[in-house]
Amino acid sequence: MNHPRNRQQRPPRQDQDSTRRNDRSYAPRPSTSSVPTVQQVTRGALVSIVLKEDQTTGREVQGTVQDLLTRGNHPRGIKVRLIDGRVGRVQRMGGAVQSAPQVAQAPVLVPTNYRREGGTLPSTRDVRFDEYEAPPVRTFFDFLPAEMQHESTVPMNTTPTVKCPICGEFEGDEVAVSRHVDEHLT
């Protein structure tokens, strides 16, 4: 049989809210109706957030939303990342909405058969349809300093050529001739 290990009597339960009200570290949380919803919080919006380390005090900081980190509504507020990198939960919306930083995009070139009846263009750019400019063809000679480009084109480290002492027909450097001579002797 399963018996509880602790058989001591528990003291009668008291109202938990009264103990929290006496605690100075407790900061009252806003009701669920006062925090903004996902539809209200957008990128570039000016908001007041409570940082994780400030949840006990309820201290709020203001900033502009860079990313939404919560997918849906949350009773303590939607978690967002501000432009300066701080992360916290949105408690209220700021006054004006600032425009989010816009990224310049190249025009989208779409083939005519891509668009469907009533369809919209894709929100991303397809680089396969971009015009391609090939880089100029360069050789090692192009990267040499100007004074070295005008020097003679004779290689500086040339090895002398030697003829085969046995047949007299094969010609090459010293290593190649020694291998050729080994073929004669084997």
Rank of each mutant, 00 (worst) to 15 (best):
V41C: 00
D126S: 05
P75N: 01
Q91D: 02
S178C: 08
P11I: 07
T159V: 08
V162D: 01
T159E: 10
L109W: 11
V181N: 06
L68N: 02
G72M: 05
R115E: 10
R5W: 11
M1P: 15
P136F: 06
M148R: 06
N2H: 13
E117Q: 08
P75L: 04
P36V: 01
M156P: 02
P36I: 01
V175D: 05
G119Q: 12
L51K: 02
T120D: 08
S31Y: 15
V61P: 11
E169T: 03
D67Q: 06
S152L: 07
N73I: 04
T161Y: 13
G168C: 03
V80H: 00
G85W: 05
Q98Y: 05
F129R: 08
R81L: 04
V97P: 15
R71Q: 13
P28L: 03
I49N: 00
S178E: 13
E183C: 02
Q40R: 02
I83C: 01
N6D: 15
N157T: 09
N2M: 09
D84G: 01
N2V: 13
R81C: 03
H180T: 00
Q98T: 14
S152N: 10
K52V: 03
V47C: 05
F170K: 04
A106P: 15
L109I: 15
D130Q: 05
T158Q: 14
R7C: 06
T32S: 12
T120P: 03
H3D: 14
A96N: 12
